[in-house]
Amino acid sequence: MKAMGRLLAASGMGLALAAAVLPAAAQDAGMKQWTRGKGWGWVWGPQDEVGALNEMTDASRAAALRLATQGKSYDLGLPYDRNSYRWPGHNPGEIISFRTPEGVARQRDLPFTTAENGNGSHTRWHSSAMFISDNVATQIDGLGHITVGEDNHWYNGFKEGDWGGNFGIRKADVTTIPPIIARGVLIDVAGQKNMEALPAGYEITVADLEAALRAQNVDVTPGTVVLIRTGTARYWGESGADHAKISGPDSAGIGLAAAKWLVEQKGALMLASDTSGLEVGPPRPQDSAAVGGSFNPVHVYLLVQQGVHIGEFHNLERLAADRVYEFAYVATTNAIRGTVAGTALRPLALR
């Protein structure tokens, strides 16, 4: 309740409201469509493409920004290149020089670059062509990323046959993700267990989350972006090239019970971690069965059923080192129409 009190004070809510807030009622404070025990779901109308992020308001954004009292910023993005670790179902990226100063001078295919046409200073440039997956490095999964059923539907019932295409999806693509400005909470599970990183295949349970929150003296309140630390990012280095070192803790993550607790009981607005997939791998049989059989049951639950976005490969090491557990979380995705994830991002934690 300490964290809730700080948030109420920061948002300028009156003393009468603060006095009326009890533990159970606190979960409902300010939420338009979230229901305890249910979460969100397809509650924003048949054409909605935004999901739980609809809950953000001018007031909630202002309250979140008031948490940044020191002016200190934490870069949550990881550097990426062609050798970086990735989930095996995604293609690697490649960066190719499209123009270089030497090439411009040698090719002479652009008249305005030549000295005889006025370019006596030999002004030239670098530009790159990027061939890259929309699901690599620091990213946010969009609501169209995961599909289920023989009809290949995603959030809100949008179907591949209706809204797929050769040039990307046409419903709930990355352009529908609004700028995210919300209260952020780090849950440092690895730190609470005094581990450098969680072991391969470790399932983060509700008890693990509760223990870390108690140790940190912070809580998840409705509308919070939750960042879960496994320790995986400590092995990333300059470009995530040590696949063997990363792949172990990268398979640690939350199970379905923890995801449901965070969304349905705590009101988490978005879940993120320092791994490539947020959830434990391989999934537990009961979790897979709960969504009809799936290798990614937590993704199915969050993205398809709940409309809750997933952040992946967030660098949480500096936050953990400084024991910063509550902050303003800020992230904006690249607006590339048709893509299913905002990729190679640099989200911020502002304190």
Rank of each mutant, 00 (worst) to 15 (best):
N156I: 01
I95E: 07
T175M: 03
G37W: 13
V308A: 13
L78Y: 02
M56K: 04
A20Q: 07
T57G: 13
P101Q: 09
P92T: 13
A349C: 05
T205K: 14
F98M: 15
I95G: 06
A211E: 04
G164Y: 13
S239Y: 11
S11M: 15
S73H: 03
R214M: 00
P111S: 08
T57Y: 09
W236I: 02
Q216N: 14
P285I: 01
M130E: 06
A115V: 12
D188Y: 02
H299A: 15
E279Q: 15
N217E: 10
S133T: 08
T275Y: 04
Y329S: 12
G51R: 02
D208C: 05
G237M: 00
R284M: 03
K245H: 02
L8R: 08
Q27C: 14
L78W: 01
L76G: 10
W125F: 10
F112E: 08
A9W: 04
R351T: 14
L78N: 10
D134G: 11
F158K: 07
L53C: 04
S276F: 01
W40V: 14
D28Y: 15
R124F: 10
L209V: 15
E264W: 04
L350M: 08
G39K: 03
L303T: 14
A190N: 11
R66H: 04
V304I: 10
P179A: 13
R6G: 10
A105Q: 12
G161D: 11
G342N: 07
E317M: 07
L110Y: 02
P23F: 03
G161K: 13
R214Q: 11
A3G: 12
A10C: 08
D287T: 11
G231P: 08
T114Y: 07
F327L: 05
G277D: 03
V21T: 00
D28A: 15
N315A: 07
M13E: 13
I95R: 12
T232V: 10
G144S: 15
L348A: 08
E210G: 05
A129E: 13
A272R: 09
S73I: 10
N83M: 09
T69C: 11
Y301C: 09
V21W: 09
T230E: 07
A331G: 00
D242C: 00
E279F: 05
Y155N: 06
E210R: 14
K171S: 10
H314P: 00
R61D: 08
A215T: 00
T69V: 05
S73T: 09
I95C: 11
V21Y: 03
N152M: 06
A19T: 08
A335T: 08
G223Y: 08
